[in-house]
């Protein structure tokens, strides 16, 4: 089981949190704590980059869903950079790819608000 690594960058009002490893029940609480800290500064856009994820379970899904729900409630934006196949499939099965803003590359995003969720 590989330890999950987080890399957090903040630039022009965009906070990018890049995951590397497995996001599961054991890691969810720690990641949520970091997300809450980041959100406390009310960044207009938080991007979760899932490209480095090798695994995500239902706890990981819940983490993402909750972050999205908080963003909607607080009138902020949250977006995901799609992960590898096994991670995409999980989102696809839950039909989350239509509910969350998902992109292939963080370059597609900017704080300005293009590509906003439906």
């Amino acid at each position: 089981m590989t330890q999950l690594e987080l890399k957090i960058e903040s630039r022009d009002g965009v906070v990018l949190m890049a995951f590397s490893g497995e996001l599961d029940l054991a890691e969810a609480a720690r990641v949520e704590q970091r997300l809450l800290e980041i959100e406390a500064a009310r960044p207009p856009l938080v991007v979760l980059d899932l490209r480095g994820l090798t695994f995500i379970d239902s706890s990981g899904l819940r983490l993402v869903i909750e972050a999205d729900q908080r963003a909607r409630r607080d009138d902020r934006r949250m977006a995901l950079v799609r992960g590898p196949e096994q991670v995409r499939r999980i989102f696809a099965i839950a039909l989350l790819d239509t509910r969350l803003q998902m992109v292939e590359d963080p370059a597609e995003l900017s704080a300005a608000g293009d590509g906003a969720p439906p």
């Binding site: 994820l53 090798t54 695994f55 379970d57 239902s58 590898p84 096994q86 499939r89 999980i90 099965i93």
Partner: peptide, 8 residues
């Protein structure tokens, strides 16, 4: 999903 859990 525990049955078909897939890791990288």
């Amino acid at each position: 999903d525990g049955v078909i859990e897939e890791h990288g």
